Simulated scan of single mutants.
Amino acid sequence: MNKPSFSGIFLFCLAFMLVATKPAFPQEYKLVWSDEFNGDAINTETWKFWEGTAYNNELQYYTPRSKNAYIKDGKLYLEAHRENYMGRGFTSARISTDSTSIGWEQGRFEARLKMPEGKGFWPAFWLMPIKDLGWPRSGEIDIMEYRGNEPYTTSGAIHFWKKECEGNPVECRKFFVEEFTQENKLNDTFHTYSLEWTNDALIWYLDDQEYQRIPFEEIEAEFDPFSGPFYIILNLAVGGDFLPNPDESTEFPQAFIVDYVRVYQK
């Protein structure tokens, strides 16, 4: 048998490397925005801090303090503390690209995230519309939500106003949600959470494995909610309607850690 030439081996290795490093999403997507959190502080020209309480009967008070939101070793930390502050028993952080100049319609939204551990933690990576007609008329896209008491499971969802519904947001809200459970705990290491928003559908991924697809033709909504640019929100809630509240076994402080956030478009 003839031995392969050096050039043949080189070309084979090069082809293998190109295949091995090929992104899981189509090549027509290009990176249009990202925050890699490589600086010394959170970029306040990009990120807006939410300060105060929140919805869903959550227990935390969101602050812009450096103990609740900071950058360390190239990663963003949104950190929850058990402390009495402004009439609440916990503090945490929520940031968003809530600006008419920072928003996107369609594309691939992706973040590499590590979850906190324990009962009562509710981190989220989600999108809200710059066009605000009053929730949920303009829509909401939850790319990743996590319950600290269910460490193997994540979920993705959308919220919108039902077609031809006349009433209040409680009566007229409709939502689709899908949970995805894997073999390893999501708080053990970083995982990649992605949403692909195309002309035809919304598609959710965990580590590039698709687990939910919602075609737009199945969404019977009023007010054309999933049109126009949406902005990104990252937050760590404590307790609330979505999960059990923390108890004595829950260790504080703990952080929702973000390695990067990226937006790709065609």
Rank of each mutant, 00 (worst) to 15 (best):
Q212F: 15
F256T: 04
G148N: 03
F37T: 10
T44Q: 15
E140M: 10
T46I: 15
A15T: 13
P26G: 09
K72Q: 15
Q265V: 04
K48G: 10
K48Q: 14
K72N: 13
K185A: 13
V32K: 10
F226L: 09
S101P: 00
T153H: 02
P169V: 05
G139R: 05
P246Y: 05
A157M: 06
G167M: 04
A255F: 03
I9Y: 07
F160P: 01
I95E: 08
S34T: 12
E222N: 12
F223R: 08
I143A: 12
Y205K: 09
D142A: 14
G89C: 04
F12I: 14
K72L: 12
S96D: 12
T21N: 11
Y55M: 12
W33D: 05
H191C: 05
Y61D: 10
E164P: 00
R82W: 01
K3Q: 11
P64L: 04
F160Q: 01
R108P: 00
E178F: 01
F242R: 07
Q106I: 01
E210I: 06
D224M: 10
I9L: 15
N149W: 00
S92I: 09
Y55R: 13
F37K: 09
G139S: 09
E110Y: 08
L18W: 05
A201D: 13
K30T: 14
L206R: 02
G240M: 04
L18P: 00
F176A: 11
I130P: 00
I9A: 13
M115V: 07
K22M: 14
V170T: 14
Q254T: 00
E79L: 03
T198F: 03
Y231S: 10
M86L: 05
T46W: 03
K185Y: 13
T53I: 11
S66E: 14
M128R: 08
S138D: 06
K185V: 01
F121Y: 15
Y77Q: 02
G156H: 03
I214L: 15
N2C: 04
K185R: 15
G52Q: 09
E248S: 14
P253S: 13
W161E: 07
F90D: 03
P136N: 03
D208E: 14
L113G: 04
D142Q: 08
K22I: 03
R88M: 11
F160D: 01
G87T: 05
E164K: 11
G139H: 09
V263Y: 01
I141G: 06
M1F: 11
P26A: 12
L206Q: 08
P26F: 06
L243S: 12
F37N: 06
F90T: 06
K67N: 13
W197H: 06
N68M: 10
V32C: 11
A15N: 01
W204I: 05
F10G: 07
T154H: 03
K131N: 15
S155V: 00
L18F: 11
N84E: 15
Q212G: 12
I232H: 07
Y70H: 15
A54K: 06
Y146K: 06
L236Q: 02
P151T: 08
E145V: 04
V258R: 02
T153E: 12
A157V: 07
E110I: 01
D142P: 01
I158T: 14
